[in-house]
């Protein structure tokens, strides 16, 4: 029997709230192969970040768990580098020093000073940021900050790269640019990537599989779409491709027909009003029915 690379094994997450326990995730089950690029997509508040945090080890699952290369994940670590939505660079350090902090911590004793310097510079080059290495985050644009954040994550040589809406705060042009860079890097390094996104085009363009999540509370995986587009992918020619548009339509259908935003659903289905609004103290059979209806 082969061991799976990354196994998100029946993960359920509950948060204690003043109104009782709130089940954010319900039985998320997903196996990811080495080098695979997986996107998580779903409406705001459904629990995407929660999934990512569990994989990162920043959050403990209430039930189930995450196994990476045969070892259970129980704390955060540099083998699962995270690129946060808001870059989260240390504002008092330059681009170089930000990457350096990661490299020094991860490769202490394993790399010499010169090797570390080369490695830091290599990673900054990878994201095309070598020209701004001595600038602080306050002095560079949002896109550049995000690049440094990615360089920092890549420099840890993670087994899995976790990205929480890495390009969400960027304008469309910069975003396209960053997506191309990311595809290049992924082709070159072959990291396993889990990326959260709100952007359907981004998901289809970058992913090997798109994991679509149902609305919370008790969100789970609604559908998984394998993207069979040849790599390397090129956005301009893909825009005209029927296959690409088919995938796009699939995701859109899921998001806007089967999983309406909680706000929209409220007006139509009164049953969902209660389910969508109040944190449920216990796993309620009612909710299950409502959700299944919504998915099916």
């Amino acid at each position: 029997m082969t061991i799976e690379h990354l196994n998100i094994d029946h993960v359920t997450v509950e948060f204690p709230t003043p109104g009782g326990t709130f089940r954010a995730l319900d039985d998320i089950d997903l196996v990811i192969e080495k080098g695979e690029f997986v996107s998580l997509i779903g409406h705001s508040g459904c629990g995407k970040s929660t999934v990512l945090n569990v994989v990162a080890g920043l959050l403990q699952a209430s039930r189930g768990g995450v196994v990476l290369d045969g070892t259970e994940v129980d704390e955060p670590g540099p083998d699962r580098a995270v690129v946060f939505q808001h870059h989260s660079l240390l504002p008092w350090l330059t681009a170089y020093q930000n990457v350096e902090l990661a490299v020094k911590t991860v490769f202490r004793g394993a790399k010499s000073k010169a090797e570390m310097r080369d490695w830091i510079e290599h990673n900054l080059r990878l994201v095309h940021m070598e020209h701004a290495r001595d600038k602080r985050p306050g002095e560079i644009s949002g896109g550049m900050k995000q690049r440094v954040g990615i360089a920092r994550a890549l420099a840890m040589q993670p087994k899995v790269l976790l990205m929480d809406e890495p390009f969400g705060a960027l304008d469309a042009l910069t975003r396209a640019h960053m997506q191309d860079s990311l595809m290049e890097i992924h082709a070159e390094l072959g990291n396993t990537v889990i990326m959260i996104t709100h952007d359907v085009d981004e998901a289809v363009l970058l992913s090997d599989r798109i994991v679509m999540m149902t609305n919370g509370p008790a969100a789970t995986i609604g559908q998984i779409l394998a993207i069979g587009l040849e790599r390397p992918r090129e956005r301009v020619s893909l825009a005209a491709s029927a296959q690409y548009n088919h995938y796009r339509a699939e995701v859109l259908k899921f998001l806007y027909e089967r999983q309406r935003r909680p706000g929209e659903a409220k007006a139509e289905a009164p049953a969902e009003k209660t389910a969508g609004e109040s944190p449920l103290p216990q796993k309620s059979p009612d909710l299950k029915v409502v959700r299944d209806k919504a998915v099916a």
Partner: peptide, 17 residues
């Protein structure tokens, strides 16, 4: 910032660092 705290956790920074 909570994100920065998380960065520290992911890097497994020591107490002093």
């Amino acid at each position: 910032d909570k994100d920065l705290v998380n960065v520290g956790k992911v890097l497994r920074l020591g107490w002093f660092t």
